[in-house]
Amino acid sequence: MNESTPSRRVALFVTCLVDLMRPRIGFAAIRALEAAGCEVIVPEGQTCCGQPALNSGDRDHAAALARRTIEALEGYDHIVIPSGSCAGTIRCHYPEILADDAHWLPRAQAVAERTWEIMAFLDEVCGWRPEAARCEGHATYHDSCSGLRELGVKAQPRRLLKAVEGLTLTPLAGEETCCGFGGTFCVKYPAISNAIVAEKAAAIEATGAGLLLAGDLGCLMNMAGKLHRDGSKVRAFHAIELIAGMGDGPAIGEDA
């Protein structure tokens, strides 16, 4: 960053899964954002974005969580999230949830307009590349449904990963197909979810890659769990971990 360029004041929305299951993704996000010249704040008061309630049809609780989240995230230049599904909830669905509330709708719209999935933010807003990142390995990449379809996150992570020295990226057959997680879907319909992730695991193995990358921890936990149950040696990481130079630690499931 040029010394004359003002620092972007960024609120990091960590997400429930990252906070509870894989905090190193949050630390990787901070490292990458700071390397891109951002001042990073993790606002107190953030909890769930309300996505599970929204997906289950509980709009009242989803709206209550949306209001709480908006209050926590107002006042920052940008809100950045290491999850396409949570970012999609805030950016695309908060204005819908609060559409009939004259007080909260403009606040929801203002927060939504400043909300970004982290790899799209680093690529599109910051124009940053991970010059110091290195990972000797062969990887494949899965596109999460929400990030891809709601936010258009597709080329951005691949451009960032291309700059990681030593990393080879092989296309995944059906890379845009759901992995079967779907938040509460995998709980409500476990047999269907398992059938979907079985096809995904087979496609991952067929690439010959030793690393599986994606931008949503829920998807990664689902795919990594299936690969582990099948005896696969493929190791799963959130893409931001490699981009931030933190790909040498335990893979998802290995630090449980």
Score class of each variant (00 low, 15 high):
1 M>Y: 08
7 S>T: 14
13 F>G: 01
17 L>V: 13
22 R>D: 15
33 L>V: 04
34 E>Q: 13
51 Q>F: 10
55 N>L: 06
57 G>R: 15
61 H>Y: 09
61 H>S: 11
64 A>R: 14
72 A>L: 02
72 A>M: 03
75 G>Y: 00
76 Y>K: 06
77 D>S: 00
80 V>D: 02
84 G>Y: 02
86 C>E: 05
86 C>F: 07
90 I>F: 05
96 E>Y: 14
102 A>K: 15
104 W>M: 06
105 L>Q: 15
107 R>S: 04
115 T>Q: 02
116 W>G: 02
118 I>P: 03
122 L>P: 06
124 E>C: 13
126 C>H: 07
129 R>V: 13
137 G>P: 04
145 C>N: 00
152 G>P: 11
155 A>P: 07
155 A>K: 08
178 C>W: 13
185 F>P: 07
185 F>L: 13
187 V>K: 04
188 K>Y: 13
190 P>M: 07
192 I>K: 07
195 A>M: 11
196 I>W: 03
199 E>A: 10
202 A>W: 07
206 A>R: 10
209 A>C: 14
210 G>S: 08
211 L>R: 09
213 L>T: 02
214 A>Q: 08
218 G>L: 04
224 A>Y: 04
225 G>I: 09
226 K>V: 11
227 L>T: 01
228 H>R: 15
231 G>L: 08
231 G>V: 07
237 F>M: 02
239 A>C: 10
241 E>D: 08
241 E>H: 09
249 G>R: 01
256 A>H: 12
